[in-house]
Design a protein around this nucleic acid. Structure first.
Lengths: 134, 134
DNA sequence: GTGTTTGCAAACAATTTGCAGAATT
DNA sequence: AATTCTGCAAATTGTTTGCAAACAC
């Protein structure tokens, strides 16, 4: 794989992110420093980076592909109010994988869990709306 | 919600399935008894049934929506060789949900976990291919 | 110079939607 | 009779692809 400033910009943007952006969000942001970059290039690079294990793609239930700069096994929380995606550490992924391997006929290579609910911020908003009758 | 023979046929087909078919697979099968049904109707009914909690939609990583007649909290196994999706019971979902709730600032309503690997059948195929040098 | 990457635009594929007519209550 | 549901087809949306030019090595 050769160097390209587009790929560098994409990675530089994504690696700082904890909100698991979509291709389009990444595109819109990378455009600020690389105005001529195209959405196709963004997709191609993201998929390439996934294939070499630098990042992970995540399907959270909204039909869009989200990109996570952390490729290791870990869980996610999705707020059903605002759609934000957070990393969440609930239990030891290796242990769960082991446990599943023992009970399942076949080989288990990895796993990922998704928790759905309302994030702290949205909980506050809901309380505020309730208390002011809005 | 009113009765319709299309919805009945969709549900009758899906409720017996353990392989989490896609809308198109459901469409192709329901067509055998309802030749004039359209794919749009299949989607509309499936989403309706999901909204009232009769079934669950599952995103397993292939970009397609899969439909699971069992709406309760349970985990899934996806074979990365053949793409099949199986239900899998690894640990008590309620317990995991509780555990996550305790550690997370915000409310957790539900969760689902996906295990990826090779199913028993594909393991056998792989072994056969290996032993016959195919 | 060779092979990879890009931007652009067109192609694709899954899902959703608008609407006039049919079916349910 | 009043709504809801259907089939059809077109629209929408996210993602992928083909190609000639630009770039990296």
């Amino acid at each position: 794989m050769r160097y390209s400033k587009q790929r560098e910009a994409i990675w530089n943007y994504l690696k700082e992110r904890i909100d698991h952006p979509t291709a389009d969000q990444i595109y819109e942001n990378v455009r600020k420093t690389q105005p001529n970059i195209s959405l196709g290039t963004v997709y191609r690079n993201l998929m390439q980076l996934r294939d070499i294990g630098r990042l992970r793609t995540v399907e959270v239930g909204d039909g869009l592909i989200h990109f996570d700069p952390n490729p290791s096994m870990h869980d996610h929380f999705i707020c059903t109010e605002c759609g934000r995606v957070d990393d969440i550490e609930v239990s030891d992924p290796e242990k769960i994988k082991q446990e599943a391997s023992n009970r399942f006929p076949g080989r288990i290579d990895g796993y990922s869990a998704y928790f759905y609910g309302t994030c702290e911020e949205c909980m506050t908003h809901k309380r505020m709306r309730a208390s002011t009758n809005l």
